[in-house]
Design a protein around this nucleic acid. Structure first.
Lengths: 152, 152
DNA sequence: CGAGAATGGTTTCATTACGCAACTCATTGG
DNA sequence: CCAATGAGTTGCGTAATGAAACCATTCTCG
């Protein structure tokens, strides 16, 4: 039935040569990155994702399919008879730096002074340091000291 | 006139305690991050943004207002009589690591082998190295070796 | 074994967001 | 003064989202 509609996701890239635009085309909606975040935090099943995000179920169905179709998630058979579980692929796991930078921006700019928020810690319970672009020689880089060059 | 509707943007946070969710609430739509990207790349005026992104103008108006309202952009008076220009605030510039990680993910996962794409270079024309989370001691971190802790 | 709950969806319908094209209004530039 | 440009607005049709109800298989347990 509505099986073929799944392909209808990418009419074309917003900007064919910009990697930022392509990534935003794939995960730049209200839910995809939160689904990825939860997958990184241990969510596996449909209801895991549904309960953690509060997303509408039909939308969740579509997002899981889209992320699977684009190779960010894979469906794995559960050890017991439970139907399907989702796991991050390598490509999905590679979004970790994106999630981390989004989180760090939010920690700095989206909370009032008194508000508490969750934090990201490593295996020892130490906070993960801020992720900042640096040049090959280690000097810090900003949008003012970098530029985008065409081609490759 | 429709001035008060601008406030209608944040009904509430998707997940009040998660910095990722708050950031996604602010910039997690199809255009905001591309607007920020273009601002970092030198776009200043309404038509700069409109032409670079191809976004519909009414949507651009709304996004510019939203980003301004949330402190990512500011309106500055142009030297000549041109009406308004937009500039990134410090908070807006702090999204640079987010743009960089999105770009780097796209470069790796959203292009076929033969396709060319733009690249980010520093002042010397050298490619910006990949941004990867590391612990305080410099060891690499992944979603498997980190966790989210409540409070702060 | 059979009833009820849980899982993983699908369907329907209402609301909202988005995109396009046409229109407005204030400044220049000539 | 007239045309062109920049910066939006408005109206309207289509697409995306959300809420709630419905459905088909498993589990779960008396």
């Amino acid at each position: 039935m509505a099986r073929d509609d799944t392909d209808r996701q990418s009419p074309a890239w917003t900007d064919p040569s910009c990697p930022v635009a392509r990534t935003v085309d794939l995960v730049g909606d209200r839910w995809s990155l939160l689904i990825i975040r939860d997958a990184m935090d241990g969510a596996r099943s449909f209801t895991d994702f549904q309960q953690r995000t509060g997303i509408a179920r039909n939308i969740l169905t579509e997002r899981l399919r889209k992320l699977t179709a684009h190779g960010l998630l894979v469906q794995v058979d559960a050890p017991s008879g439970r139907r399907r579980l989702y796991a991050l692929t390598e490509a999905g796991k590679d979004l970790f730096p994106v999630i981390v930078t989004l989180r760090q921006w939010g920690e700095r700019h989206a909370f009032e002074a008194g508000e508490t928020h969750s934090v990201l810690v490593d295996g020892d319970g130490a906070r993960v340091p801020d992720l900042l672009p640096v040049a090959a020689d280690g000097s810090p880089l900003t949008s003012d000291t970098t530029s985008v060059r065409r081609h490759t």
